[in-house]
């Protein structure tokens, strides 16, 4: 039963991301973009693509084979992108983006790089200590939300997913960080810092979001 729910959850995420990608491509390719009706139809196309056999397995299964534990922040980013390109709604402000990229860069660096530097510290192991992990993530979520950041809700979603064992992994850290989110965060932070460096000093990093 859990396996079926897991696969259903994963297939939904793949369809959503494909839908967002198709809608984004449509917006670039078609001068005035697609109508809402056509954007919704793209959802059906995305569902078809997810089950398109590549070799002897469907596309969603290929994605699952390579990345079976997408973190909730990564899925949240996908959802935000989907809402933006399909329904033209923006849910996050500049503080949310900075918080998301900052959290992804720091958490990923600690989790993935520390075994190569300090072998006596086993950070990943503490992800199985649900009491420790839930307390840490809960505290971060409370701090973020109390500060007014909508991005904090992604940590709450990660906690809820952990409680429901929604991913294949049983380790709490896999619910909040994954290699793709980490690399994306590092790239985005680098872009923001570069952009900030080119702007007048008074603007600061957050001004890099100005379009």
């Amino acid at each position: 039963m859990r396996e079926q729910a897991l696969v259903g959850f994963y297939v939904s995420a793949v369809i959503l991301l494909l839908w967002a990608a198709l809608a984004a491509a449509g917006r670039r390719l078609v001068p005035h973009g697609f109508t809402l009706r056509r954007r919704l139809l793209l959802g059906l196309v995305a569902a078809g693509l997810a089950f398109l056999p590549l070799g002897d397995v469907p596309l969603w299964m290929r994605a699952f084979s390579f990345h079976s534990n997408p973190s909730l922040p990564l899925l949240g980013l996908g959802l935000v992108a989907w809402a933006r390109v399909v329904f033209e709604r923006s849910w996050f402000g500049r503080e949310d983006w900075l918080a998301l990229w900052g959290f992804g860069a720091v958490a990923g660096t600690v989790l993935y790089v520390h075994p190569l530097v300090a072998t006596d510290v086993d950070v990943y192991f503490w992800g199985w200590e649900r009491g420790v992990a839930a307390s840490v993530l809960g505290a971060l979520a409370v701090l973020a939300i109390a500060g007014g950041l909508r991005a904090g809700l992604l940590l709450v979603a990660a906690l809820a997913a952990l409680g429901l064992d929604a991913l294949e992994s049983r380790n709490a850290w896999d619910y909040v960080i994954d290699p793709f989110y980490w690399l994306l965060s590092l790239g985005m932070l680098a872009a923001i810092l570069l952009q900030a460096a080119r702007r007048p000093r008074r603007s600061g990093p957050a001004a890099a979001f100005k379009l």
Partner: peptide, 28 residues
């Protein structure tokens, strides 16, 4: 250069006080 589409909005969208209280309770 812009980090869009992942950073679509330059505007501040901080939660209201009421939403913050609700969010904190939800987190706890």
């Amino acid at each position: 250069m812009s980090p869009a589409p992942a950073a679509p909005s330059p505007a501040s969208r901080r939660l209201s006080l009421r939403a913050r209280c609700g969010g904190v309770l939800l987190a706890l």
